[in-house]
């Protein structure tokens, strides 16, 4: 590891001050599961490492004003163990529960996962399906943007050198909302996503789909909403029959997204299985039918 100075602020204000001073030469470390590997492999030149992991005010998961608010330092384990999330946001619960291994879930934070924005990142796919908003804060102020915008038109994210992500929030799912995620990988633990799918479905009183948010991960560098699938779903009844064609729609989407990639032939087939299972979970969440795994 190359040399650097190390700071461990206890409050957000302190951290933002430090960040403002060091700017682009600073490296923020939260859980460290992405960043320490880069440091060990001497891939990162940095003068100062700012450990935000001791800022307890950024570790929370609460429902407030109809929103589910998650502090950036919340770990996957925190989310997995949160009873509200487990009961009401099944997609996010399942996403957190399937990250890496127990050790990684204990260390890895939501902030790190969202800001690091790797192809292999699982929670961005789910948060995008939840149409989440990120909160960014710097010494000079606070701004918010939709996750889709946070990732749009840039190499990684819209975060500035002097900003920290402090929170991500989304609308608390009403009774009529079901969520599900699934990731296809190559084994049963420590899985890097091959194809990930996150879905939010809202139904109206008549049992028809009033809102559909469908996001695919692991295929393009950043997760992608799939408007064609969403448009197809809206207005149709929540049923196995409605969901069945999604497999082919998703398969087409994969083919369009990565027409020449060597992994395309498998992903376009595998996504069909993922689709059936994910929508199976949606049905189960609505209490309509047993879901997949």
């Amino acid at each position: 590891m190359k040399a650097f100075n190390f700071y461990s602020p206890r409050t957000l204000t302190e951290a933002l001050d430090l960040l403002d001073k060091c700017k682009s030469r600073a490296t923020v470390i939260a859980g460290g599961t992405d960043v320490v590997i880069e440091l060990t492999e001497r891939q990162r030149d940095t003068d100062c490492v700012i450990n935000i992991n001791k800022i307890d005010e950024l570790r929370y998961c609460k429902v407030e004003d109809g929103k589910v608010k998650i502090g950036a330092l919340t770990t996957f384990t925190d989310l997995e163990n949160n009873s509200y999330i487990r009961e009401n946001v099944k997609g996010l619960h399942s996403c957190a529960a399937h990250v890496g291994s127990p050790q990684i879930r204990n260390l890895g934070t939501i902030g790190g996962n969202v800001v690091n924005c790797s192809v292999a990142g699982d929670s961005p796919t789910t948060f995008m399906a939840l149409d989440a908003t990120v909160v960014l804060q710097s010494k000079t102020g606070k701004r918010e943007m939709k996750l889709t915008d946070f990732y749009a038109n840039c190499k990684k994210t819209q975060i500035a050198d002097n900003e920290l992500m402090t929170e991500i929030y989304f609308d608390a799912p009403a009774k009529e909302v079901a969520t599900a995620t699934m990731k296809l990988g190559k084994r049963k633990a420590l899985v890097i996503v091959v194809v990930g799918l996150a879905v939010l479905i809202e139904k109206d009183d008549a049992g028809n789909i009033s809102r559909a948010q469908v996001v695919i991960g692991g295929v393009s560098p950043k997760p992608a909403r799939l408007p064609k699938v969403e448009e197809y779903l809206v207005g149709k009844p929540v049923s196995k029959c409605t969901f069945a064609p999604c497999a082919d729609l998703l398969s087409d989407a994969v083919r369009e997204m990565i027409p020449t990639r060597a992994s395309m032939p498998y992903k376009k087939e595998g996504v069909k299985g993922v689709s059936d299972k994910t929508f199976g979970q949606i049905l189960a969440d609505f209490g309509l039918q047993e879901g997949g795994r």
Binding site: S101, K186, R187, K188, A189, L190, I192
Partner: peptide
């Protein structure tokens, strides 16, 4: 190990 996969306790 992240690219050469061996069975885990789950497998």
């Amino acid at each position: 190990f992240s690219k050469y996969l061996i069975p885990t306790a789950m497998d």
